Lab assay of single mutants.
Amino acid sequence: NMVHPNVICDGCNGPVVGTRYKCSVCPDYDLCSVCEGKGLHRGHTKLAFPSP
């Protein structure tokens, strides 16, 4: 899995490795796959980016 450079997960404050989930509503909100799997930020649609 690749690390998305200059992207920090807003759920756990860790690096985003593998798929990046970017909120389509909020201007700067990203989740890693673990936090997305936990259902964080469920109210907004997210775009999935498998690689940087």
Rank of each mutant, 00 (worst) to 15 (best):
V3H: 09
D28W: 03
P5R: 03
N13E: 09
V34R: 11
C12Y: 01
S24C: 06
Y21A: 02
P52A: 09
N6W: 04
H44W: 01
V25G: 06
S51L: 10
D10N: 13
D10P: 05
K22T: 11
K46Q: 04
N1F: 03
P15T: 13
C23E: 02
R42K: 12
R42V: 14
C12H: 02
C32H: 00
K22S: 07
E36K: 04
T19P: 08
P50F: 09
A48V: 14
P27C: 03
M2R: 05
C9R: 00
G37V: 06
V16L: 03
P15W: 10
G43R: 09
R42M: 13
L40F: 12
P50V: 07
R20F: 10
L47P: 05
N13F: 10
G39L: 06
V17Q: 14
P15H: 06
C35D: 01
V34W: 04
G39Y: 07
H44Q: 00
C32T: 01
H44C: 05
A48E: 15
C32N: 00
V25N: 12
V3G: 09
L47Q: 15
G18Y: 10
K38A: 07
Y29G: 01
H44G: 02
S24Y: 06
G39T: 04
S33F: 06
V34P: 12
Y29C: 02
H41D: 07
C35K: 02
R20C: 11
V7G: 08
G43C: 12
C32Q: 00
G18Q: 05
A48P: 11
V3T: 10
P15M: 09
R20P: 06
E36Y: 09
H44R: 02
Y21R: 03
C12Q: 01
N13P: 01
N1P: 07
P15I: 07
F49Y: 10
V25K: 09
G14V: 12
F49A: 10
C32I: 00
I8V: 12
C35S: 01
H44K: 01
Y29T: 03
R20I: 12
V34Y: 12
P27M: 08
G18N: 05
D28R: 11
H44S: 02
P27F: 08
Y29N: 03
C12R: 00
A48C: 14
K38M: 06
I8R: 13
H41M: 06
V25H: 10
S51I: 07
D28E: 13
P50L: 07
V34C: 11
R20T: 09
D10W: 11
P27K: 15
C12W: 00
G18V: 03
V34T: 11
P5S: 05
H44P: 02
G43W: 10
F49C: 12
C35H: 00
D10A: 15
H41Y: 00
K38H: 05
C26L: 01
V25M: 09
N1V: 04
Y21V: 02
C23K: 01
Y29Q: 02
S51E: 12
L40T: 12
T45W: 04
V25P: 03
G14H: 12
S51D: 13
S24K: 12
V34D: 10
C32L: 00
V17P: 11
F49K: 12
T45E: 13
T19S: 08
C23T: 02
N1R: 04
P27A: 07
L40H: 08
L40N: 13
Y21N: 03
H4G: 13
N1A: 14
C32G: 00
N6F: 03
E36S: 05
Y21W: 08
G11W: 07
C35N: 01
Y21T: 03
S24D: 14
N6Y: 06
D10G: 15
K46T: 11
D28F: 11
N13L: 07
C35G: 01
L47R: 10
P52M: 02
A48H: 12
R42E: 15
P27G: 05
H44I: 02
S24T: 14
C26I: 02
A48N: 07
G14I: 07
L40S: 07
S24A: 13
L31C: 04
L31N: 06
G18I: 02
G39N: 07
V34S: 13
D30I: 10
E36T: 04
N13Q: 14
V25Q: 09
V7P: 06
S24E: 15
R42Y: 09
E36C: 05
F49Q: 14
C23P: 01
S24M: 06
Y29R: 04
D30M: 11
C35F: 00
T19H: 04
T19K: 12
I8Y: 14
N1T: 10
D30V: 09
A48Y: 10
T19W: 04
P5L: 15
R20M: 10
S24F: 04
C32P: 01
V3S: 13
K22F: 05
C35P: 01
L47V: 14
K22M: 06
V17A: 08
C12V: 00
S51F: 06
I8S: 14
C32E: 00
H44T: 02
Y21D: 02
P50Q: 10
P5T: 02
K38Y: 05
H4K: 13
D28L: 05
C26W: 00
F49D: 13
K46C: 13
V7Y: 12
Y21C: 02
R20E: 03
V7I: 11
T45P: 08
S33D: 10
C9F: 00
N6H: 14
V3I: 11
G43A: 15
M2W: 00
T45A: 12
S51M: 12
C32D: 00
S24V: 06
D10V: 14
H41C: 09
C12E: 01
G18M: 04
K22L: 04
V17I: 15
V34N: 14
C23L: 02
V34H: 09
D28Y: 06
F49R: 09
H4P: 12
N13K: 15
F49E: 14
G43S: 11
C9W: 00
N1I: 09
D10Q: 15
L40Q: 08
V16W: 00
D28S: 10
V17M: 13
C26N: 02
V7T: 06
H4A: 12
G43F: 09
F49H: 14
V34G: 11
P27N: 11
D10R: 15
G11I: 05
A48W: 05
S33V: 07
L40E: 11
G39E: 12
G39Q: 13
G18E: 09
L31F: 06
G18P: 03
L31E: 04
K38F: 09
T45V: 10
K46I: 14
S33L: 09
S51R: 06
S51K: 08
H4Y: 08
S33R: 07
I8D: 12
R20W: 11
L31K: 01
H4L: 12
H4R: 09
M2C: 04
G43I: 11
P5I: 15
M2E: 00
K46F: 12
C23I: 01
C12K: 02
Y21K: 02
C9M: 00
I8G: 07
L40A: 06
G37I: 05
D30A: 12
V25T: 11
V7F: 03
A48L: 12
K46W: 08
D10F: 11
G18H: 04
D28T: 12
G14F: 04
L31S: 04
V25R: 06
T45C: 06
N13G: 04
L47D: 13
L47Y: 07
Y21H: 06
K38V: 05
I8P: 05
N1L: 06
C9E: 01
V3Q: 04
D30N: 15
D10C: 15
H4Q: 09
K22N: 09
N13H: 09
S51G: 12
R42S: 14
M2F: 05
N6E: 15
C12M: 00
I8A: 10
Y29V: 02
G39M: 08
Y21P: 03
R20D: 06
V16R: 02
K38W: 03
D10K: 15
G14T: 08
G14M: 09
P27V: 04
A48S: 15
P52G: 00
G39K: 09
V7C: 10
C23N: 02
L31P: 01
P27R: 13
D28H: 13
S24H: 08
Y21E: 01
H4T: 13
G39A: 06
T45D: 12
L31W: 03
M2L: 03
S33Q: 13
T19I: 09
C9N: 00
G39H: 08
D30S: 11
G11L: 08
F49V: 15
C12T: 01
E36D: 10
N6V: 11
P52H: 05
P5Y: 05
T45Y: 06
V3Y: 11
A48I: 15
R20L: 10
H44F: 02
H41K: 03
N13Y: 08
E36M: 04
D28I: 07
N6Q: 14
K46V: 12
P5M: 08
T45F: 09
P52F: 03
D30C: 09
F49M: 15
L40C: 09
K22C: 05
F49T: 14
P27L: 07
V3R: 08
A48T: 12
N1Y: 03
R42I: 12
G39I: 02
T45S: 10
N1K: 15
S51V: 11
C35A: 00
P27I: 07
K38T: 06
R42N: 14
G11Y: 10
H41F: 03
G11R: 05
G37D: 13
K22E: 05
G39C: 04
G43H: 14
Y29M: 15
C23V: 02
E36V: 04
C32Y: 00
V7D: 06
D10Y: 12
P50H: 11
M2G: 01
V25W: 04
H41S: 02
C9K: 02
V16F: 03
A48K: 13
P27D: 05
G43P: 07
V16T: 09
T19A: 09
D28Q: 10
G14Q: 10
G18D: 08
V7L: 09
S33I: 09
D10S: 15
P15D: 15
C9H: 00
H4E: 14
C35Q: 00
H41T: 03
H44M: 02
R42D: 15
C35Y: 00
K22H: 13
K22A: 05
L47N: 14
K38P: 01
D28V: 05
C35M: 00
P52T: 08
V7K: 10
G18C: 03
Y29K: 03
T19F: 07
P15K: 13
E36I: 02
L47E: 15
V25Y: 05
V3L: 10
G11Q: 13
S51W: 05
G18S: 04
L31V: 06
Y21G: 02
K46A: 07
C26P: 00
G37N: 13
G39D: 08
N13S: 08
H41I: 03
S51Q: 15
G14P: 00
C9V: 01
V34L: 13
G43E: 15
C9T: 01
K22D: 01
D30W: 14
H41N: 02
G43T: 13
N1C: 00
G43L: 11
H4F: 13
P52S: 09
